[in-house]
């Protein structure tokens, strides 16, 4: 069990009874509850992409930020021209990224079969989130005309089959990798338990709370911890407070950027709904982040980082 899994299990056990007792929580309240966690733990895990990428690639910081911004711009362009494609690309990249961070510490290289596992695992949890909260999602999307392009993508029966197939494939792949001795039996059991718990969490909790619980504990907390331990082993940071200072500038910059966009919407300068705008922003940050993290994990594998750092 990793510490991230422990934090996830402990959070589920402590929060679930209260949430079940509350019954349906309106999305506006969910946003009030979840936003601080997403801002304070979600954004920081991607706030040192430049530092991580530069450890593995000999390019200048300015050039990296330039390429980063071009990718963000291209992604925004795709959202304007082909929102459906941009949306699917965002979900697939996120799925791969979630899977990669979930399994990274078990491996020391990334052959194709591991990458397939990352993708199926991620598709399983994202499609599970959508399928198990399809009514809530459709209700939110029906309130804003921009989401009309994705309405057909969220049909319950489509999501059911995607969820079912990806989950079965994930389990079969994990069993196959265990049979081939790439994963231990204990790892297989733990990952089966975790996937089952995540799906149960999505089923039992409201959409945003369920996702935030997964995203903050199992994903962001784990990645932040890996980033800190790596930079600490490289003597780039020597304490957690150093690390916090390191992630602060781009975290604040991102929060200010989102605040600015919301301000423009509020003043009717930008004619988008808040939700749609946030989706584009998250997708645009995710695109370069996924590539950076892929490079980061390759570096960790080359350095045999996980030996003694799980």
């Amino acid at each position: 069990m990793t510490r991230a899994i422990f934090v996830f299990i402990a959070s589920v056990l402590l929060l679930l009874p209260f949430i079940l007792n509350e019954g349906g929580i309106p999305i506006s309240y969910q946003m009030i509850i979840c936003t601080p966690f997403l801002l304070l733990l979600g954004i920081p895990h991607g706030a040192i992409d430049n530092i991580l990428y530069l450890r593995n690639n000999p390019i200048k910081n300015g050039k990296f930020i330039g390429v980063y911004l071009v990718l963000v711009g291209l992604n925004i362009g795709l959202w304007v021209i082909l929102p459906g494609v941009a949306y699917i690309m965002f979900l697939l990249l996120s799925a791969y990224h979630f899977g990669q961070s979930q399994f990274s510490h078990y491996f020391n290289k990334q052959p194709v079969i591991y990458k397939v596992l990352y993708l199926f695992w991620g598709v399983s949890i994202i499609s599970g989130l959508v399928y198990l909260n399809v009514e809530e999602i459709q209700q939110i999307m029906s309130q804003h005309k921009e989401f009309a392009a994705f309405y057909s993508l969220h049909q319950e029966n489509h999501m059911f089959y995607i969820f079912l197939i990806s989950t079965i494939c994930t389990f079969l792949l994990m069993i196959f990798l265990t049979a081939k001795k790439y994963l231990s039996l204990e790892t297989l059991l733990m990952e089966m338990l975790v996937l089952t718990l995540i799906i149960a969490c999505f089923y039992l909790m409201p959409l945003l709370i369920g996702f935030t619980l997964y995203f903050v504990t199992l994903h962001s907390f784990k990645v932040l911890r890996e980033e800190y331990r790596f930079l600490n082993s490289e003597r780039v940071v020597n304490s957690i407070s150093n690390f916090i200072i390191m992630v602060t500038p781009f975290t604040l910059f991102s929060i200010a950027g989102i605040g600015l966009l919301f301000g423009l919407i509020y003043l009717n300068i930008l004619s988008l709904s808040y939700g749609y705008c946030l989706l584009i922003v998250i997708s645009s940050i995710t695109l370069p982040h996924v590539f950076v993290m892929n490079s980061f994990y390759n570096l960790l594998f080359r350095r045999n980082f996980y030996k003694g750092h799980t």
């Binding site: 069990m1 510490r3 422990f6 299990i9 402990a10 056990l13 402590l14 009874p17 209260f18 079940l20 007792n21």
Partner: peptide, 24 residues
């Protein structure tokens, strides 16, 4: 339900401590 939830959660804190001690 509120009684069951409150005492259930308080009890869970003890469980989580033992779980943490056993695993980490």
């Amino acid at each position: 339900t509120s009684h069951s939830v409150l005492w259930g959660v308080l009890s869970t804190i003890g469980y989580i401590y033992i779980l943490y001690t056993a695993w980490f």
